[in-house]
Structure formats: structure tokens, C-alpha cells
Design a protein around this nucleic acid. Structure first.
Lengths: 205, 205, 205, 205
DNA sequence: AATGAATGAGTATTCATTCAT
DNA sequence: CATGAATGAATACTCATTCAT
């Protein structure tokens, strides 16, 4: 009742709107989300939303930018700066990260990308350039270091970083769709990494 | 171009329409596909389409139902009737199947399910009941037989059939999104199966 | 109450809608006319309107096409086919036509062109090509015949057909704006034509 | 480009804004001009603009008021104060004025009046009272003096001052619309005045 | 006085669905 | 059965206007 009708908070608006958009997209997907709803969730008028984001598509892109890149970048920074052995890194920070992904905003983004990607080639390219290629590149480098240092053997596995990402993406999608019949995605991810490391170290398993 | 795609045989109409819908959904996704376009593709008037499918959603569900079950069922039948060793089966029919999936209609369905699934819980349930649980169940049984016969060792791997499905789903999605930067999905799938069998047979790799 | 909700009248719809649009544009101008209102005036749903006219602009163009060209063409045909003397034609059919214009749909079109022309260069060009240049050309020819036959003297007047059109356009605009303080446009037009003919015939006036 | 167009002098603000509005209206017409743009052109914030003009309509009216009246008044003053013969006046100051009009702000105003007039009856009335009736009245008086002094003969021409204004208005509109296919408006105006004077003096032409 | 962030009513356009023919 | 003309609810986006700062 006594709330001022106006709240001048230029600084925070874009983030608030982006966060609201993430929620809305998570619930309904891109196409089925009304801009009205995003505005309402953000506690903001539709007009203001359009002041910061020229189109619904812009908003979508902004969501992608805000919620995935920072996480990936953090992980990559750890690879680059730490001096852990490759195995330690994979079993430590990488595994932690991988387990967090299903259930995090990233999973929402994955769904949005799968659903809307074919209609937004530029966004897919952006996503590839800034997320996927970075991520795969970082793992590649990690494996290469492991091979160089003699920690890992060189094999077809050490050349396919996708093998490490695979269980994460799969878990995201599985959880998303079949939350009623969940599988133990933590165990899945862990098992896969065990398998891969085991192979790379030449162990009998 | 202007010719109706399909002949005027009453009995086949529903399937013709469903096939046309699959094409259209593949190109644009569910939300962005106009019923008009499906009708045109099927060489049928919009009115007639609505005679067979009460709503666009019905049509969608019908598409999902029609294009996956037959394939999965074929695979399962092979498991049940053949007397190959588990390894032979995995390296033979299963691998063949797995490689075909990316690029087949199944990949379209996967995309549709990921995008639209959260809005259609009953469809997801249907998909789980008729496709996913069957598929996972069949692999489970296959692994169990391998363990029973002494061909495979029992381990956490033999209890997680998802490990076998994972590369297929991942490849589908990867191909779908990043067709401009393709990875070698055949090799990915094959490597994963090698890894898994290798582990199950207790080999040094 | 008992009216059928549907009226299948494909043939007549476009004209009905165009006529309704003319009325609406006449009342409010282009920008301030809502497509909704045109549809309502035409007794048609908005959706149907968009079936025949892709955009509001299309509708606008269609109005211009339908209500001016036929009239001009009729006049031109009379020039071409009749064998009246030039003076007779100017004092007869031309004067009749000129007097009818203010108050006819053409006056609405003139207003629309003045108001919206600068935003629609292609429409202006269309209008020039199909209406103005034809009209001026026809008068030009008429004057030239008059000179050839010795009926008129050659002078700067016989080379400026705009002198004949001028009072018509002026009257249209004057009537449109100052309907509360009307001037006698019939007399204005007649006087101007008298003046011009008088001059062309070399009379003392 | 990014510099404010006008200096920050309080007293001049309204005029600066009005001038900016004239430019903007000239470019896009009334409806299509955004208040934002006017403010930017004037180097002023939107808020300040609204301090001086309560609504966009007010601004519009102010533009109309500001740019025509001074010119007309100047002309009228010349009529009243000079002791030229009527013919001299028409061929001198009046002709000069008439030739300047197309291309001056007046032509913008004419366009705005034609387009928006029907929506703003009070503005039209204002325009009539302060511009048109004055202008026509002044010419009327001029002609009347000419008749009184024996310079002109009395006729239907001497009672229709609109005959003198006509070519000006026509030229404005013609230029506005068909700048790509220009006619010689100077010659048109001159010819018309020649014709009229010739008639009034009873000459053979 | 001056700013520009914030509002929200208003509008063109789309498309699933119906139904007269 | 078959058609496609007709409907109308739904929605992205704009812009004049307000008001906290």
C-alpha cells in the first residue's frame, strides 16, 4: 500500500530481470514464456524490461551469457592456475563441478539451447565459442599435460574430451525429463570418470 | 513442388500426416511449426487434419509415439531371441543401432522431448513406460545374462545400463546443436562401448 | 441473434474491407486508424482482414488503388475517344469531374497521400505513375490538340496543365480543413477554367 | 553530432524546443515523431520538455502557431502601410512571398494541418482565425482598393482572393509529394498572377 | 530547474481451431 | 469426407506521460 510506485535502481535492474527470465524460461521454455510474466517476476513493468533488452531474443541471449560463462570460466581458471596432478583435478574440482551441473541454471540453459538452438544459429555459435570450445579445450589440455608428464597413457580416450562431458549432459537431460524416475546421476558421473582415469592409467579394472 | 506429397488413400492418412508433422517439427520445433504447414506438407486440408487429430498437441503426441517405439522394439526383440554372447551383441547389433540414431527420426524426437517434455507430463510418462524403461531394461537384462554366464564381472558398471545409452543421447544432442563443428560421434560411441566391455571383462586396457 | 456466425463470401470481402478502410482512414487518417476498427466496419474479424491484406500498409495501398485510378481512367478514356472540341471538353466532362472531386473518395486519398506520403515513397511513386502523370499527360494532350487545330493559341498556359488541376486540389484541401468556413469551390473551379480558356482563345476578358 | 544543438538559456528554451519539433515533424509527420526525438534534437531531457508543453499535442499546436503567423503578419503589414499600386504590390512583395513559401517552414505546417487537422478542430479554427482569414482578407482589401481606384475592373475574379493563394498551396503540396518529379512552381505561380492581373486590367492576353 | 528511469495502456500481427459449404 | 474461409484469443513491442531523485 505504502510502497512508492517508482523504484530507481538502474544498477540492479538488468540482473534482476535476467534472473527472473531464467526462472520463467526454466518453467515454460522460451517460446511459451510471455514477456509479461518475466516482467512481473522481476517486479518491473514491461516497458522497463524493453528499456534494457531490445527484444525477447536479446533477453534470452543475456540469460545464456549470465549463467553459464562465469561457471565455466571459474573451472578453467582452476585448471590453469593449480598444479594438481591431472587425476587429482579430475577427481576433485572437476567432479565437484560435474555433480553440481544437473540442478543448476546450466541445466536450464542446456534445455533452452536444445529446444531453441536450431532457430537461433548465432546464439549457438556464441555458445560454442564461449562455452563449449573453451570447456572441451580445457579438458583437452589437461589430458595432454597428463600424457606429457607420464601420468596418463596416450590413447583414443586421451583425445576425446567429450567422454568426460558426456555424463554431465546426459544427466542434465535425464533429470530434466524423468525427474519422477530419477537415476543416480552422481554415481553415473563418478563411474564414468573412474572408468576413464582407470583406462588412462593403464590399470586393470 | 506443388504436388501433394502423398496419395489419397484414406487408410494411410493418419500416418502420412504424422510423417509430415515429423518433418515440420524437425525443421522448426514444436511451437514454431504451424498446423497449416503440416497440412500442406501432407497434401491435405487443415480441416481434414483436424478430423484425425483433435489438437496440435494430439498430433505432437502421435509423432512421438509413432517414430521411436518400433525401432526400440526391434532391438529388444533381437536381444530376446538371439543367442549371441553379450559382447557379440553389444559390438554387433547394438553398436549398429547406436550409430544410426543420430541422424534418424529418433534424434528429432529427443529434441522435441527435451524442449516440450516439461509441458507434457503424460507424454513423458508414456515415453518412459514404452521406450526408456524398455530400453534400459533390455540392456540390464543383457548385462545380467553376461554376469550369470561368467562372461562379465559384476560391478557398478554392470548395474548402470545408462552408461551404454549415454553416448548415443549425447551424440544426438551434439550433432543437433553443433552441426557446424561436428565431432566424430561414431568414434565416441565405439570408444565408450570398448571401455565398458573392457572393464566388464576385467581386461587391462 | 439468428445470424449465422459464418458468412462465406470470398468474392466480396476484399472490396468490402477496402471500402471500410476508406471510411476509417477518412475519419482518422492512416496512423490513427486501428485495424480493429476497419475490421469492425467491414463486419469481419481481424483475422480475416489479415488473410486478404498482409499488413496495414498493404491495406492502405489497396485503398489508393481502388478509389482513384478508375475515376482518372474514365476521364482519360473520354478525352481519347470523344471528338469534342477542346473547349467543349474542358467546359463539359472535365468541369463535371473537377466539381465532383471535392467530397469524393479522391479527396480522402489526397489527404492520406499528403499526410503519409513522405513515409511511403513507393506508394507516392505508384500514385505518380498511375494517377498524376496520366492525368497531367491527358490534359497536356488535350491542350496540344487545341493548339494544333488552331482552337487555342500557344502560350505558357498551354504548356502548364497543372493550372487546370490546381483549383481542384486546392478545393479538396480547403474543404477538408475549413468545412466550417466553406468557400464556393464550384465557382472557384469554374472561374479558373474560364480564365484559362479565355486566355487560350485570345479573348479580351 | 552528440553536442546539444542549443545553448542552455532558460528564456529561449520553448522556442528551441519548438524549432526542434518543427524539424522532427517535417521529417516524419506528427504521429510518427517521438517526443524522445524532439527532446534529443533540442538537447534537452524529456522531462524538461514536458515542463514547457503539457502534451505532445500542445507542442504540435505551438509549432503551428509559431511558424506561420509572423510571416503572414509581415506581409499584411506591407499591404497596409505601403502605397504601391495593387498591381505593383502583387507583382512585387506578394510574388516574392509566394515564391518563398514552398520550401519554407510554412510548407511543413501545411502538411501537418492537412494530416492532423481533422483531429484538432480547435487548431484548425485557430489557424483560420489567425492565418487564413487574415491572409484572404488582406488580399480582398487589396483587390477592393484596386477596383475603387479604377486600376482593376470588378468581376468574379476580384471577389475570389483564393485564386491568388491557390498556386502557392498547390505548389507546396506538389513539391512535398513529388520532389522526384518536380514542376516549375515559380513559373506556375507567376503565370497564375499574370493571368489574374491581366484579367483584372481587362487586357487582351 | 532538470533528469531519465519507470510506467502501462494501446496496437499490429499470428495462428490454433471451428464450421458453412 | 473434404475444404479453406472465418474466427478471436493471445502476445511482442511502442511510446506518451509521470515522478523519484
Amino acid at each position: 500500500m505504502n510502497q512508492p510506485r517508482y523504484q530507481r535502481r538502474k544498477e540492479d535492474r538488468p540482473e534482476e530481470i535476467t534472473a527472473a527470465a531464467l526462472e520463467a524460461f526454466a518453467k515454460n521454455g522460451y517460446a511459451a514464456t510471455r514477456v509479461d510474466e518475466v516482467a512481473k517476476r522481476a517486479g518491473v513493468s514491461k516497458g522497463l524490461l524493453y528499456l534494457y533488452f531490445k527484444t525477447k531474443e536479446e533477453l534470452f541471449k543475456s540469460v545464456v551469457r549470465s549463467f553459464v560463462m562465469p561457471r565455466i570460466d571459474t573451472l578453467i581458471k582452476i585448471i590453469e592456475t593449480s598444479d594438481m596432478s591431472s587425476e587429482k583435478f579430475l577427481r576433485g574440482p572437476f567432479l565437484d563441478f560435474a555433480r553440481q551441473v544437473p540442478g543448476s541454471p546450466i541445466s536450464v540453459i542446456v534445455r533452452l539451447m536444445v529446444a531453441e538452438g536450431p532457430k537461433h544459429p548465432d546464439l549457438v555459435q556464441f555458445y560454442w565459442d564461449n562455452v563449449v570450445s573453451h570447456g572441451l579445450g580445457a579438458i583437452n589440455e589437461l589430458l595432454w599435460h597428463g600424457v606429457q608428464s607420464g601420468e596418463f597413457q596416450r590413447s583414443t580416450v586421451s583425445e576425446q574430451p567429450a567422454l568426460f562431458v558426456m555424463p554431465v549432459i546426459f544427466s542434465v537431460i535425464f533429470n530434466l525429463l524423468f525427474s519422477k524416475q530419477p537415476i543416480d546421476t552422481d554415481r553415473l558421473i563418478e563411474t564414468q570418470i573412474d572408468l576413464l582415469i582407470s583406462h588412462l592409467k593403464g590399470h586393470t579394472t
